[in-house]
Design a binder for these strands. Structure first.
Length: 490
RNA sequence: CGGGGCGUAGCUCAGUUUGGUAGAGUGCCAGUUUUGGGAACUGGAUGCCGCAGGUUCGAGUCCUGUCGCCCCGACCA
């Protein structure tokens, strides 16, 4: 019992203090270490391996939809950043400036890219002459810098890793299609690879990206009921093209401005995974992005034959394509159990003398708790690969369903402000579905009075929403056409 | 940018009230016994007490300043 108590002491309980639980996890699972600069973190090998898996899976989805990777400079001259009015107003307050090269003051200061729209635009203006040059479907993997005031590992850091897609098209229809297609790519990726269902939607006018015609987003719900914007796509129309003087000669021999999109996801996704799936024993990683899918723990490894058998299973599973680690260190078995639970490894395979005798091993699923049926199963070694594959699949599905159930349990439909206040105080944070008349005043008033802001206008709107006069704005009570998801955001 | 908390061993912290040899637990290293849920014992190494001034015979402790980190808000992927 004393041991179990100690195990619990290692990390703060999730329900007791979610914020503290989160920071405990990122440190103790060895994802990050804080650095000497506020808001900048060391991403440690285990954390970076998660990012590498995210990159690999997303990059394949990008390539499959016709995109190419490029790399832009990390510095943007002030004059270039200033070219699009809304854009600079949106980003200027949070950019870092380089003013000196060595000891020489620069003639023009350079900002460290907070995002690369301006660089892509400048480049496009140089390479696009004809409709034959379109579209360009570019993406870059890089880091960007935004001088945030409040920072949290993965969720909001001053430097973060991301990808930014920037595409340019001959027509508005094509660019809008691209914007919506990439939103689907992100949502599918979240569901299939991160096992984290998301709400697809559009941002309200006040919440749009600086310089965009429309901004789309995917919103995930964390275990504590707060929303996390997990990814975003933007349709720019031809506003940037006009500001940056990008033109092409179309088939009809007239000059036209092309239409653009951009889209991005970041290392914030890792924060989302932690808060969507983690529990009081630590991380729980979706199999597709887990650096280690199966950890093999030899039991009584000093005994003849145990380590040899464990090594055999390791190479067997590795050659079957699984990411496997054998921990043959001299820590006790119990220590290893707790360690890999903390790190969220999906499956633990135990192999000991008794198992070897019976040609079996024990496999334990990380996502299930002690009381869940099927947490621990005895697997015949003749079926090892099939069993591992089946269990990883079941775990993946289990995570998705648990996460979806959390969204469903924490999504409330409300008709007026008092209902929102009441339902949130009774049930805790979550998504509030409520109609909205479209006025910014009402949007602000809801946030001020209830604490929840508009997260998105979901793509899926209620049947007849545009014509049904029964729908009234949650704030002013006037006829409302738009269903909005409201929530507290990270 | 406002409010709060904290900087002492790798980590968590005590010591600051009342100035007087730098501490504990944990981790680390070595050895022995252990090994199916964070093992036990013995021995060992580890400190610019965030930084800079000041007061004092003497400062982790008192004074002034400064830097950084964490949490909660307002703003943002």
């Amino acid at each position: 019992m004393a041991k179990e108590k100690k195990l619990v002491e290692e990390i703060t309980s999730r329900d007791e203090d979610f914020a503290k639980w989160y920071t405990d996890i990122v440190k103790k699972a060895e994802l990050i270490e804080y650095s000497g600069v506020k808001g900048c973190m060391v991403i440690r090998p285990y954390g970076y391996a998660i990012w590498e898996n995210i990159q690999r899976l997303l990059d394949k989805r990008f390539k499959d939809t016709g995109h190419e990777n490029v790399y832009m400079p990390m510095f943007i001259p002030e004059s270039l950043l200033n070219k699009e009015k809304d854009h600079v107003v949106g980003f200027a307050p949070e950019v870092a400036w380089v003013t000196h090269g060595g000891s020489e003051e620069l003639a023009e200061r350079l900002c460290v890219r907070p995002t690369s729209e301006t660089l892509f635009c400048e480049h496009y203006s140089n390479i696009i002459k004809s409709y034959r040059d379109l579209p360009k479907l570019y993406n870059q993997w890089c880091s960007v810098v935004r001088w945030e005031k409040t920072t949290r590992p993965f969720l909001r850091s001053r430097e973060f890793l991301w990808q930014e897609g920037h595409t340019i098209h001959a027509t508005a229809e094509e660019a809008i299609h691209e914007t919506e297609q990439m939103l689907d790519v992100y949502a599918d990726f979240c569901a299939e690879d991160l096992n984290m269902p998301v709400i697809k939607g559009k941002k309200t006018e006040s919440d749009k990206f600086a310089g965009a015609v429309s901004t789309y987003c995917i919103e995930a719900l964390m275990h504590d009921g707060k929303a996390l914007q997990a990814g975003t796509t933007h349709y720019f129309g031809d506003g940037f093209a006009k500001a940056f003087d990008i033109t092409f000669t179309d088939k009809d021999n007239t000059f036209k401005h092309p239409h653009q999109s951009s889209w991005g996801v970041s290392t914030r996704l890792i924060g989302g995974i932690i808060m969507a799936h983690g529990d009081d024993s630590g991380l729980v990683l979706p199999p597709n992005i887990a650096p280690i899918q199966v950890v093999i723990i030899p039991v009584a490894q000093h005994k003849e034959g145990v380590l040899d058998k464990a090594r055999g299973l390791e190479s067997q599973l590795k050659s079957a394509g699984f990411r496997v680690k054998l921990d043959d260190s001299d820590n006790s078995a119990g220590w290893k159990f707790a360690e890999y639970e903390m790190k969220g490894v999906p499956l633990r395979l135990e192999i000991g003398p008794k198992d070897i005798e019976q040609n079996q091993c024990v496999i334990v699923r990380r996502d299930l708790t002690k009381d869940d049926e099927g947490k621990k199963s005895f697997i015949n070694l003749d079926d090892l690969e099939q069993s591992v594959s089946r269990l990883l699949g079941a775990l993946s599905k289990g995570l998705y369903e648990k996460c979806l159930a959390n969204i469903e349990a924490r999504t409330y439909t409300c008709g007026n402000i008092d209902e929102i206040i009441d339902v949130l105080s009774k049930n805790g944070d979550g998504f509030v579905k409520a109609m909205w008349c479209g006025s910014e005043d009402c949007e602000d008033e809801v946030k001020e009075k209830t604490g929840v802001g508009s997260r998105c206008i979901p793509i899926e709107q209620p049947e007849g929403g545009k014509t049904n006069q029964a729908y009234a704005c949650v704030c002013c009570g006037k006829p409302a056409e738009i269903l909005v998801y409201w929530g507290k955001a990270y």
